[in-house]
């Protein structure tokens, strides 16, 4: 079937891209000034432990062997020990991954859906007050500097109004309470997630709205819309059933293209709200010279971006039969 071939081809591409990223990172690591051993091995370790780690990473071997060790360690999940946490890196990032995925995917799905919905309405009221307000609003929110918006959100909604917690993802007391059910815990996470989610949503929905709006305006000029009118369909059916599914396709493409941009924003949001995700871990580890943790976080983020690209591609193929068949 066409779809399987298409996904297979994309998977191969993704693998190649990732391999290149791995290799470039290795080369940069070797090119960077300073001693590679001191980057990978915590200077506070005992000489025995240090020797063990050096052996594991093959840091005493010639360059090519080091590269092979590096690949082997990557594919077997050996990223070394975090200087800061003193734990295996893989454990730390594995814990952080679900948190990032939760915030990242919810924000993208929410902003794309709302953007598509509002863009549809704006196009339908083209030139009217509704349209002008929405377009201007989208332009403004879309260009706000994200970390600043995050700070303002905290300042207004958490500090001044006290509606939401200032930082973090959970209330420790609730999670330690043995009586708290899953529902209470989920609500607690949602409560903490509101502000970061709102920040990411505000930044992202605008561009999807603008794309959907202009795409709708183009689609409404298509001949099959005229066919729909000639068939005596109601304007609502024409808009929702005939124009919108076609007009949403460019929005999906743009979601895919802006994934890299979204993950940048995700890392900034996580950092400001101290949301325990990989993006924040990357920022944190870089500022604390914790290279093993930084490297692993970066690679994991790269995988997340590449795989979400794949998901978007599959979604596109699902929405557009011209690719599926």
């Amino acid at each position: 079937m066409e779809l399987k071939r298409y996904i297979g081809r994309r998977l191969v591409q993704i693998f190649v891209i990732f391999f290149v990223i791995l290799t470039v990172l290795f080369l940069l690591f070797r090119l960077a000034p300073g001693d590679p051993v001191s980057r990978m091995v915590d200077p506070n370790l005992t000489p025995e432990d240090a020797a063990l780690l050096i052996k594991e990473f093959g840091l005493d071997q010639p360059l090519l062997m080091q590269y092979l060790y590096y690949l082997k360690n990557f594919f077997t999940g050996h990223f070394g020990f975090s200087f800061h946490y003193g734990q295996p890196v893989v454990q730390i990032i594995w814990n952080r991954l679900p948190n990032t995925i939760l915030l990242f995917t919810t924000s993208i799905i929410l902003s794309a859906l709302v953007g598509i919905f509002l863009g549809k309405i704006a196009s339908w009221h083209k030139g009217e007050k509704t349209d002008i307000c929405m377009t201007l609003g989208a332009l403004v929110t879309h260009t706000i500097f994200l970390p600043w918006l995050a700070l303002i959100m905290i300042w207004v909604f958490a500090y001044k109004l006290g509606w939401f917690p200032i930082t973090g993802m959970i209330t420790v007391e609730i999670w330690l309470d043995p009586q708290a059910g899953l529902w209470t815990k989920a609500l607690d996470v949602l409560y903490h997630m509101t502000l970061p989610l709102a920040t990411l949503f505000l930044i992202h929905f605008g561009s999807y709205l603008l794309i959907m709006r202009s795409s709708m305006l183009d689609t409404l000029k298509e001949d099959y819309i005229l066919t729909g009118r000639a068939k005596g369909l109601s304007e609502k059916v024409i808009r929702d059933h005939h124009a919108a599914p076609n007009a949403a396709l460019p929005v999906v493409t743009s979601v895919g293209l802006s994934l890299a941009f979204s993950i940048n924003g995700g890392a900034l949001t996580e950092t400001v709200f101290t949301w325990p995700g990989i993006g924040r871990e990357l920022v944190f580890s870089v500022s604390h010279n914790d290279y093993p943790l930084a490297q692993a976080s970066f690679l994991l983020i790269a995988i997340v971006v590449l795989l979400s690209n794949l998901v978007v591609d599959i979604l596109y193929a699902y929405l557009d039969p011209r690719i599926r068949y």
Partner: peptide, 21 residues
């Protein structure tokens, strides 16, 4: 070009900061 497009530029710069100070 495709490869560079999927890279989050801010985070790559962070990695460079980690490596090159």
């Amino acid at each position: 070009a495709d490869m560079i497009m999927v890279m989050p530029s801010l985070l790559v710069l962070l990695m460079l900061a980690a490596l090159f100070g």
